[in-house]
């Protein structure tokens, strides 16, 4: 976030922070309630990760100001996510190869 901030814009930011706080609290309760649904394990994992991703996006987007952040940081993060998936899927290829899937 840039250093130029008017009092009005900071107060608008604070209003948004409190709304995000409310949303994160509600989504935490939803995560717990969703774990009691009678669905399959894979469906449960999918649902829990979707909710966690929404919560993480709210934190990164608003608390970490990523939605207004400079492209330099966005590109660093895109590169990191690419390497993360490479790290995740390379062993998966090896695993599926070993069990002949």
């Amino acid at each position: 976030m840039s250093s130029e901030h008017s009092t009005e814009s900071i107060q608008e930011h604070i209003r948004v922070y409190l709304m995000v706080f409310g949303a994160l609290g509600i989504l935490t309760v939803v995560t717990v309630l969703a774990s009691y649904l009678e669905i399959s394990t894979s469906e449960g994992i999918f649902l829990a990760l979707i909710i966690a991703s929404v919560k993480a996006s709210l934190v990164a987007g608003y608390f970490m100001h990523l939605i207004t952040e400079k492209n330099t940081i966005i590109w660093i993060l895109i590169l990191t996510v690419v390497f993360f998936f490479v790290m995740l899927f390379l062993p998966l290829v090896s695993y599926t190869d070993q069990v002949h899937i």
Binding site: T28, T31, S35, G44, A48, L49, A52
Partner: peptide, 8 residues
């Protein structure tokens, strides 16, 4: 960590 360790 919360859903992955506690809920799944």
């Amino acid at each position: 960590l919360f859903p992955v360790l506690y809920l799944l």
